Each structure stands twice: as structure tokens, then as C-alpha cells.
Simulated scan of single mutants.
Amino acid sequence: MNVAAPSTIFNAIRPADDGPSRRRSRWIAAVELGLISSSFSTVVGQLFAARIGRDAAVDWMTVAAIPARDWALGPEPPWSAIITGIAFHQWADFSWAVFFFGVLGRWTADLRPSAILVLALPWAVFSSSMEWFVLVPLFPFWQPLFTLLQPYWIGLLVHGSSAVMYPLFARLRWRRGAAPARDVRFTNAWITAALAVIALLGAVALFGRHGYGPPWMGRDRDADQTYIRHMTAHHAQGIELARIAAERGQDPHLRKLAMLMVASQAGENRILETWWLSWFDSEMPDCSTDERATMPGFLTLVEMRQVKAAPADQFDSMFIDAMSRHHAGAVRMADQMWHDHGDLRLRIMAHAIRHEQRGEIALMHGASGFAAVATAFRNMLSDNVN
């Protein structure tokens, strides 16, 4: 029995060598590919975020806090933070593409487009894991906020949207007019598909902003409506409580974290309100006093007044205690929805909310380093209901 040599197998997924004079530097091609792939993932992320319950502006602000720390955080994402977050994201995606085709170019730069795609998707898993588990929360940035507030799958989606553009390298590595016809056909089809995806997401986003998004697709209408109403009311109290801390907090970092809580919960409420109008075509009824009293973690008027009136030297500890209980209640509500049979978009959003709010509890208690990574990993997978 004849067994093909490894070099023969590897050459089968390489294009024929048409001579170095027709090739461009793999580093130049990698730079161009990095610009394309990072820009594509930015556009897709911006357009797709709200479809799964994410406020893109808040997410960009959170990303900006990786290099810019507390400067980037505010109760409303400032344009400076949004631009910083986008730029940092593009730099990161750009760097991964250059590493893949430049540093690892000895093994990747000559592959056929289909082979590049096969390798690019595991690369997205690797690169997103490195950022979420190591590079951001540990070395070199030592910023636990990103990992504790965004579940891993968000980064995986972002890196995946970047990686799907990697097959275009098969066209960029050739000088103008020198690319093999097969690579040209493949990349032309790939570019067309990418533009179609952007156009589709853009149309859905545009209609969604005006209340004409995809219809509700859950199994239990009453349960989904109850969850949206309750979480919106719960968030409203959380915003009120966080605004107090943003003004009265003694620890500057706690004040900034409270501002982020305001921004994230306000953004989520806007999405929930938009979904309600789109799905149920009516105004959202307010929660009754009895409903609020039965919500887990919902503070009483007396408890809210106690936080507002707390002496300056006791305020931070009282706020952390009150907000931790409030967040823990929201986590239980979100976890119930995650395990329920509601609309998939609502369940995905609920999973992100429970991760975010447990992460904020950890941040209020000073989590960082390896402890923050371990906490984030547990938060993403834990069951807070059963």
C-alpha cells in the first residue's frame, strides 16, 4: 500500500507555483487583508449587535476601556470612547491577520482559499480565547472589565466575522492580473457574498430602528412579555441606583463603574422597548407595585432612601451591598429566561445580561487577574436557578 508523503498532501492544497515575479510580498498582502477583515468585522458587529440584544456603543466603550481604562467610561458612551473602541478592535483584528499570514506565512501564505477558510475558523477560536482568557485580563493589559462583562461568545462572533474574510488573501498575494482564474472566481464570489451580508444586515438594522424588525418567534408569549416588562422595570431601578453612585461614590473607580452600569442597562432597556414595539405592536404596560415587590433583588423605597441618605464614609459599602443584591436578582431573572423557551434573541440577551451583572458584582468587590478570569468563566457557564 502506497502512502502519500506529507509534502505531497500539503502541496495538494497549495496553488501551482507560477513564479515569484507574479507574487507580492506576503507581508503587504497580510496588511491589506488585515485592513479588510477588521473593517468587515467592525461593520458586521455594528449592524448585528442590536439583533442579539447588544448596544454596540456600550460594547465599543467597554473595548475602549481596555487600553484607556476609566477614561473611556461614562453614563452615555462618548464619541471619543466609541472611536477609541473601534480603533482598538480594528488594531487587534488587524494584528491577528498579519500574524496569521505574515509570521505564520511559511505555512499559510500559499494555501488555496478553501484551505485558508478551514484554518481561519479554528484561528478565530484561538485568537478570541487568547484575548478573553489571557491578553486582556492578564498580560499585557491587566483589564478584567472586558472579560467579566462580555461573555466569550461575543468575542468569538467578532473574530469569526473577521476570519471569514481571510480567503481573500488568495487574491491579494498576487500582482494585478496574475492571480489564477480559480482563485479569482472564488474570491469574487466571496466578496459578493460579504457585500450581500452587509446589505442584508444594514436593511434589517434600518427597519429595526423604526420598529419593523423580525417578528416575535417564541413559544410562550405571556412569559416573554412578563420577562421584558420585569427586566425593564428592574433595570430602571438599577439605573437610578447607579446614578446615585456616579455622583456620590467616594472611590473614583466605583463612580466610573456606576456610570458603565447606567450606560449598559439604559442600552438594554432601549433594545427591550424596541423589541416590544416590534413584536407586540403596543405600548409596554408598567409593572404594578405588587409585581415590583415580588421581583428578586428589587429594592424597597426604604432601602433606596437609605442608600441615598448614607453618610459619605459609608456610601460606597452601602451601594455595593445594595447593587450586589439588585444585580443578583437580575441574574436570577435572566437565568430563568435563558433556560426557558422564549424567543431566541431574548434568551441570548438574557445570557449576556446574567454574565454582565455577575461580572459587575465581581468588579465592585475588586476582582482582577486570575481570579477575574476564573470568575468570568464560572459566570458564563453557571446555573443560577436550579
Rank of each mutant, 00 (worst) to 15 (best):
Arg106Met: 06
Ser128Arg: 11
Ile13Thr: 03
Pro151Phe: 00
Met295Asn: 09
Ile13Gly: 01
Ser288Trp: 06
Pro296Gly: 02
Ile348Cys: 01
Leu119Val: 14
Arg209Gly: 15
Ile116Gly: 00
Tyr166Val: 02
Gly238Val: 01
Trp153Gln: 10
Gln314Cys: 05
Met304Arg: 15
Arg171Ala: 15
Ile52Ala: 12
Ser129Thr: 15
Leu156Asp: 05
Met1Gln: 07
Phe169Asn: 12
Leu195Ile: 12
Phe40Arg: 10
Glu240Asn: 04
Gln143Tyr: 02
Tyr166Met: 08
Ile361Ala: 06
Asp224Pro: 09
Met304Trp: 02
Phe40Gln: 09
Leu149Ser: 14
Trp96Thr: 04
Ala328Arg: 15
Asp335Thr: 13
Thr62Leu: 15
Ala49His: 05
Asp224His: 07
Gly267Pro: 07
Pro122Cys: 03
Ala367Phe: 11
Trp279Tyr: 14
Asp251Tyr: 07
Pro122Lys: 03
Ala266Gln: 08
Val197Cys: 12
Ala233Val: 01
Val373Cys: 02
Arg332Thr: 15
Met323Asp: 02
Glu268Lys: 00
Ala196Asp: 04
Ile83Asn: 05
Ile191Ala: 14
Asn269Thr: 13
Gln237Cys: 09
Arg332Cys: 07
Trp338Leu: 12
Asp335Val: 06
Val373Trp: 07
Ala189Phe: 14
Asp220Thr: 13
Arg14Thr: 08
Gly105Asn: 05
Asp383Tyr: 05
Ala30Val: 09
Gln150Tyr: 01
Asp335Phe: 05
Ser278Leu: 05
Asn384Tyr: 15
Ile116Phe: 00
Trp190Gln: 01
Trp27Arg: 08
Leu344Arg: 11
Ala310Tyr: 00
Ser114Gly: 12
Pro180Trp: 13
Phe370His: 13
Ala362Val: 01
Gly45Ala: 01
Ile116His: 00
Ser41Asn: 05
Arg176Ser: 09
Ala258Pro: 07
Met261Ile: 14
Gly249Phe: 09
Tyr212Ile: 00
Ala64Leu: 03
Pro167Trp: 07
Gly366Glu: 09
